[in-house]
Measured scan of single mutants.
Amino acid sequence: DVEPGKFYKGVVTRIEKYGAFINLNEQVRGLLRPRDMISLRLENLNVGDEIIVQAIDVRPEKREIDFKYIP
């Protein structure tokens, strides 16, 4: 289970104008929005990159997770 405030290693699987989709595993995916990136820009991410993200909002009923990147 993903818990708000905890850090997780994930893989960038898709990049859109509104953010990057990060997979923690095959069943768990969330969104990293540009506003939640500190010292990292969306255009510097590539599909396949491994990054450490912090879960900031977890909505299991909608199967949605918002992430934050903190270097």
Rank of each mutant, 00 (worst) to 15 (best):
K6P: 03
V11G: 02
K9C: 12
N25T: 12
A55T: 07
P60A: 13
P60E: 09
G48R: 04
R33A: 05
S39D: 15
I56A: 10
V2F: 11
V11F: 11
R63W: 11
L24M: 04
L24N: 00
E3P: 04
A20W: 03
L42M: 08
E61P: 07
N46V: 14
E43C: 09
I51R: 00
A55N: 01
Y69R: 02
D1S: 15
E43W: 10
V28E: 07
V2M: 07
N46E: 13
G19T: 02
T13N: 05
K68E: 05
A55P: 06
G48C: 06
T13A: 10
V53Q: 00
L24W: 03
N46F: 15
G5T: 04
L32R: 01
G19Y: 06
D57N: 15
V47Q: 06
I15E: 00
V58H: 07
N23A: 14
L40S: 09
P34S: 10
L31H: 03
V53L: 04
V2K: 02
N25C: 09
Y69K: 02
I52P: 02
E64N: 07
N25Y: 07
G30H: 02
G48F: 06
K6H: 12
R29K: 11
S39Q: 14
E26N: 14
Y8G: 00
I52W: 13
G19Q: 03
L31P: 02
D49G: 04
A20P: 01
E43L: 08
D49C: 07
Y18T: 05
R63Y: 12
R14P: 00
E43R: 10
D57V: 13
I70L: 12
Q27M: 14
N44A: 12
R59V: 05
P34E: 13
G19V: 05
F67A: 02
E26D: 14
E26A: 15
D36K: 03
R41P: 07
R63A: 11
D49N: 05
P4V: 15
L32W: 04
A20F: 03
V47P: 06
R63P: 08
E50A: 14
Q54M: 15
I70C: 08
R29P: 02
R29Q: 14
E16M: 14
R29N: 09
V47D: 03
N23W: 10
I15P: 00
D1W: 15
R41H: 13
L31T: 04
E43D: 13
K62P: 06
G10L: 03
K17Q: 13
P34N: 08
